[in-house]
Design a binder for these strands. Structure first.
Length: 839
RNA sequence: GCGGACGUGGCGGAAUGGUAGACGCUGGAGACUUAAAAUCUUCUGCCCGCAAGGGCGUGCGGGUUCGAGUCCCGCCGUCCGCACCA
């Protein structure tokens, strides 16, 4: 047996064996229980990075473990292959996006294979291929026919650099998420998916996702943003461009008698109508639009208003009128684009009222006696009883809300309403490298879906990227077709779908991929929902919400009887690394620096280097570590082991040279343990106990994805085996140890398994059985405390009675000395744990 | 501003209210070696002490308890998400 484990040979060998035997192919017809383990599929950016390695290693451990437990496991891989970077590359490097993308996929597939992941490559898919996106077009048309897709003129976020429309979610601090350019507002005809139709069920569904992180559920809940309140109308005292009423929304109808003004958004029809005849109003509106939209600017932005001179009539008192302002803080796209202000109980209204000298009245107080207390320096937003509010006086806030809504509805001036923050999903993108929207525009018939027998609508290959904008629109012939309905000359839709559509159903296609339709319902339902989904928290809202919506939409149209696509979700932490800076402030990469005593210096020049914080690996800070050379040097198993060690998987993992060295040493150590194991006789009860406790602990820790703890369990067992004298138990322990590490370091495990003379693959072996009688110790260590402070420990048989433990504790020399002849006032005995003497 | 998470050795981190620091990394000492690497042994929270032993220790201040890293109250700090949402 070789003295050293050679990963370069072993990795390639076993990867080939697994591939030849089809070890990780999932059968749709298996009678075994099923398990679907999925990691978020990568964008083919060019090369695998450490974040991928960590993500896919976690999923792989779980997938391999489940297989050993007897499950039929589906663990597939594919490529989220449409998107902007391919077009950027096309523009910069004069290479076709498809060529660039497919080359990247080939590279990255090779890199993934070298890591030995137990993937079913027969189900590999790439979203940029017609045999994927064609089916997506079919699903889009199904949703269109079901009325879940519509087209509307809408003001959109226009990215002037990428020359495309962005979803609200893709605008961060007023800038495009990719280009960083300041976003403009433009009116375009766009396709929308009716995600708001599902707002309620998407929100309620979160309650069923008990295997999701609370954090993600909360983020989605906030994103959906349900608010319940009252929508009601004010009558205007003057006609404003033909509009006699102003509709507002409030979540605090209970404070209706505390109103001191009403305000509309600068984009509100009343404001726009006013601007036509009042230049001061027009000037104010223009000023509002000039304001910055970054977070910092918004936070410090002053509340500003323009008094229109119009008065609105209070719905509960026709004698009472309020001034109507145009105000910069009122958003057109939330609620009705108009509000009424209650300065006493809303901080924003308070600031506005303070500035414009409007009354600040109290209508909620801690008690009825405090009705005349003035409001202090801040609005009071808490609960209490209603005061100064006529028929509402004395009611609790919630009761008053209900009463005002009831009254508004019976008197006909308003209605209890739910308002959502969630907007419909705009999916049109003015890009080439995406799924063509399968619609034909006919002058006579309007938009017509492409007949299904004409799908896929394939992207033309002959396009150029020498000018900005959408090459599909410029293509000489592609868009010119005849109308499927009337046969007249018509044009194709030249927009493509948001790439988040592609990732909203790929997990279904993995489960079932027939040629003639997107998926077979019955096959897909055998696998779905995904049992465990693993990926970065950056997808907590967008991707996960869209996929949940898409799944529910398919259910509504009867295509799939699944409500939630991902039963379990895990969001893993990032891989981080120290940062280094030269004297001139420029970033240095890890291989440009070296240690010099306690300091760091530049490798070549020897100049001192400043060590910065540990941060997410990024190209801009040059603190990335490319996995491939690491695999070349240490092999796949050492990298995998390191990815699982030390840091809890949900937290960041600091990459270090010492860490990978340590992982490499352990892999070699495992090899030596297997290679050097001497056959021995007899039973070693203590080792057997440790072994079975470890089997149980590792299983439990893998189940809960606590890989760092499973790793620690394995180290402990390895230490115990090495310390134990030769015995039959020890031989079994080494074999079992290999089974326990097999999901984590599979190449080494196969090699050692074979070296021990086993003929089957360890990948096909069963997870070891636990002997429950060996999980309990027969001797326990008892802590002896005086006043809660540890003074001694003693060994006692498990289950020893309290009296015995107390006697033993009192007999301890150390205890006798500390007590100094005085009997304890009280004795607390916790069986099998401790004795606490209160002196 | 709102919401959330987290603060434990030199570092990553363990710890059903019951022996804080498992396990790993780093570092020290020693063995093997002509030497180095690898490997093995051993020590490694801080302070006092030759030692035996003792004292202090889980961000800070209180509280509950025989006993608190863990539970409760109040601060401080770091990170993340949302952000004028009516």
């Amino acid at each position: 047996m070789a003295a050293r484990f050679n990963p370069l040979e072993a990795d390639a060998h076993w990867q080939k064996v697994w591939e030849e035997q089809g070890s990780f192919r999932a059968s749709n017809d298996s009678a075994k229980p099923r398990s679907y383990v999925l990691e978020m599929f990568p964008y083919p950016s060019g090369r695998i990075h450490m974040g991928h390695v960590r993500n896919y290693t976690m999923g792989d451990v779980l997938a391999r473990y489940r297989r050993m437990q007897g499950f039929e496991v589906l663990h597939p891989m594919g490529w989220d292959a449409f998107g902007m970077p391919a077009e950027n590359a096309a523009m910069e490097k004069k290479v076709h996006p498809g060529e660039w993308t497919r080359a990247n996929i080939a590279t990255m597939r090779g890199q993934l294979k070298r890591l030995g992941f137990a993937l079913d490559w027969s189900r590999e898919l790439a979203t940029c291929e017609p045999d994927y996106y064609g089916h997506e077009q079919a699903l889009f048309l199904d949703l269109y026919e079901a009325g879940l897709v519509y087209r509307k003129q809408s003001e959109v976020n226009w990215d002037p650099v990428d020359m495309t429309v962005l979803a609200n979610e893709q605008v961060i601090d007023g800038r495009g998420w990719r280009s960083g350019a300041l976003v403009e507002r433009r009116k375009l005809s766009q396709w929308f998916l009716k995600i708001t139709d599902f707002a309620e069920e998407l929100l309620d569904g979160l309650g069923t996702l008990d295997q999701w992180p609370d954090k993600v559920r909360l983020m989605q809940e906030n994103w959906i943003g349900k608010s319940q309140g009252l929508r009601f109308r004010f009558r205007l005292t003057q006609e404003a461009a033909g509009m006699g009423e102003l509709e507002v929304f409030t979540t605090r109808p209970d404070t209706i008698f505390g109103a001191s003004f009403a305000a509309v958004s600068p984009d509100h029809p009343i404001a726009l109508a006013l601007a036509d005849r009042d230049s001061a109003a027009a000037e104010f509106i223009a000023e509002c639009k000039r304001g910055g939209t970054t977070a910092a600017e918004l936070e410090t932005a002053e509340k500003k208003g323009f008094d229109t001179g119009i008065k609105v009539v209070h719905p509960l008192d026709s004698e009472w009128t309020l001034p109507l302002y145009i105000a910069n803080f009122v958003l057109m796209d939330y609620g009705t684009g108009a509000v009424f202000g209650v300065p006493g109980h809303d901080q924003r209204d308070y600031e506005f009222a303070s500035k414009y000298g409007l009354p600040i009245n109290r209508v909620v107080a801690a008690s009825a006696e405090e009705a005349s207390e003035p409001i202090g320096s801040e609005a009071e937003t808490g609960g209490g009883v209603i005061v100064n509010s006529r028929f509402l006086d004395g009611m609790e806030v919630e009761a008053a809300k209900a009463e005002v809504i009831r009254r508004a509805e019976s008197e006909g001036w308003g209605k209890g309403t739910t308002v959502w923050r969630l907007r419909d999903w705009g999916v049109s993108r003015q890009r080439y490298w995406g799924t063509p929207i399968p619609i034909i525009h006919c002058e006579a018939c309007g938009p017509v879906g492409v007949p299904k027998d004409q799908l896929p609508v394939v992207l033309p290959e002959d396009v150029t990227f020498d000018v900005p904008g959408n090459p599909l629109d410029r293509h000489p012939s592609w868009k010119h077709v005849s109308c499927p309905r009337c046969g007249a000359a018509a044009v194709r839709e030249t927009d493509t779908l948001d790439t988040f559509v592609d990732s909203s159903w790929y997990f279904i296609r993995f489960a079932s991929q027939p040629g003639h339709q997107p998926f077979e319902k019955a096959d897909a339902e055998k696998w779905l929902p995904v049992g465990q989904y693993i990926g970065g928290v950056e997808h907590a809202i967008l991707h996960l919400l869209y996929a949940r919506f898409w799944t529910r939409a398919l259910k509504r149209i009867g295509r799939l009887d699944i409500e939630e696509p991902f039963k379990g979700l895990f969001t893993q932490g990032m891989v981080t690394h120290e940062t280094y800076r030269a004297g001139d402030g420029s970033w240095l990469s890890p291989d440009e620096v070296k240690r010099d005593g306690d300091d760091w210096v530049h490798f070549e020049s020897g100049k001192p280097v400043e060590v910065g914080r540990v941060e997410k690996m990024s190209k801009s800070k040059k603190n990335t570590v490319d996995p491939e050379p690491i695999v070349d040097q240490y092999g796949a198993d050492a990298v995998r082991w390191f990815m699982l060690s030390d840091s809890p998987p949900e937290r960041d993992l600091p990459w270090s040279e010492a860490g990978i060295e340590g992982a490499w040493r352990f892999v070699q150590r495992l090899w030596r343990m297997a290679a050097d194991e001497q056959s021995g006789q007899g039973e070693d009860k203590a080792l057997a106990r440790k072994l079975h406790q470890t089997i149980a602990a590792v299983a439990a820790n893998i189940e809960s994805l606590a890989f760092n703890k499973a790793v620690a369990n394995i180290y402990e067992l390895a230490n115990a085996i090495e310390k134990a004298p030769p015995s039959a138990t020890r031989g079994q322990a080494v074999e079992t140890l290999l089974l326990l590490v097999a999901p984590m370091v599979p190449h080494l495990a196969e090699q050692a398994w074979a070296a021990l003379g086993r003929e089957n693959l360890i990948a096909d072996a069963a997870w070891p059985e636990v002997d429950p009688t060996l999980l309990v110790e027969d001797e326990v260590t008892i802590a002896v405390q005086i006043n809660g402070k540890l003074r001694d420990t003693l060994t006692a048989p498990k289950g020893a009675p309290k009296e015995t433990l107390e006697e033993m504790a009192l007999a301890s020399e150390k205890i006798v000395r500390v007590l100094d002849g005085k009997p304890p006032r009280k004795v607390i005995v916790v069986p099998d744990r401790l004795v606490n003497l209160v002196a």
